[in-house]
Deep mutational scan, measured.
Amino acid sequence: RELEAFAERFKQRRIKLGVTQADVGAALANLKIPGVGSLSQSTICRFESLTLSHNNMIALKPVLQAWLEEAE
């Protein structure tokens, strides 16, 4: 499924970029996305391991996609 594929791609790109899960969480606050502050390292970890609820995964995907586009 698309969500699982994105989570895997996100993790691979993050590692290639040399960015930690905690760095991603902190950097999200800098994107100034309305309603989104920083996220914890454990939230990023749970996203990558697909252990968040489906609704949370869907909500976080565009936020993490925005970070990925900014980071690349």
Rank of each mutant, 00 (worst) to 15 (best):
residue 16 K to E: 15
residue 15 I to M: 14
residue 63 V to A: 09
residue 46 R to Y: 10
residue 62 P to G: 06
residue 26 A to G: 08
residue 61 K to P: 00
residue 68 L to K: 00
residue 2 E to G: 15
residue 14 R to E: 00
residue 38 S to R: 12
residue 22 A to T: 07
residue 57 M to A: 08
residue 71 A to Y: 11
residue 32 K to R: 12
residue 24 V to F: 01
residue 61 K to M: 14
residue 47 F to H: 00
residue 50 L to D: 09
residue 45 C to M: 12
residue 32 K to F: 08
residue 4 E to D: 11
residue 42 S to H: 12
residue 12 Q to H: 05
residue 32 K to D: 11
residue 58 I to N: 12
residue 43 T to S: 07
residue 31 L to W: 13
residue 48 E to V: 03
residue 51 T to Y: 04
residue 58 I to L: 15
residue 34 P to M: 09
residue 70 E to G: 10
residue 50 L to R: 14
residue 13 R to E: 11
residue 24 V to S: 01
residue 67 W to Y: 10
residue 71 A to F: 09
residue 70 E to V: 05
residue 4 E to S: 07
residue 66 A to G: 13
residue 11 K to E: 00
residue 21 Q to W: 05
residue 56 N to L: 15
residue 71 A to K: 13
residue 5 A to Q: 15
residue 37 G to T: 13
residue 32 K to A: 11
residue 14 R to G: 00
residue 38 S to Y: 11
residue 58 I to H: 12
residue 40 S to H: 13
residue 34 P to I: 04
residue 42 S to Q: 14
residue 26 A to D: 13
residue 69 E to V: 12
residue 16 K to Q: 13
residue 29 A to G: 13
residue 34 P to Y: 04
residue 31 L to M: 05
residue 53 S to P: 14
residue 10 F to R: 02
residue 46 R to Q: 13
residue 47 F to S: 01
residue 29 A to Q: 15
residue 27 A to D: 03
residue 64 L to V: 04
residue 32 K to M: 12
residue 9 R to V: 13
residue 64 L to S: 01
residue 17 L to H: 01
residue 69 E to K: 12
residue 25 G to A: 15
residue 2 E to H: 07
residue 72 E to T: 07
residue 1 R to K: 07
residue 57 M to T: 08
residue 65 Q to C: 10
residue 43 T to W: 04
residue 25 G to L: 08
residue 70 E to Q: 11
residue 21 Q to H: 15
residue 39 L to R: 02
residue 15 I to P: 00
residue 53 S to A: 14
residue 15 I to F: 05
residue 13 R to M: 10
residue 21 Q to L: 07
residue 17 L to R: 03
residue 64 L to W: 01
residue 19 V to Q: 08
residue 47 F to W: 03
residue 1 R to N: 08
residue 65 Q to Y: 05
residue 53 S to F: 06
residue 17 L to Y: 03
residue 32 K to H: 10
residue 17 L to S: 01
residue 32 K to Q: 08
residue 22 A to L: 06
residue 16 K to G: 09
residue 68 L to I: 11
residue 62 P to K: 08
residue 70 E to W: 05
residue 5 A to M: 15
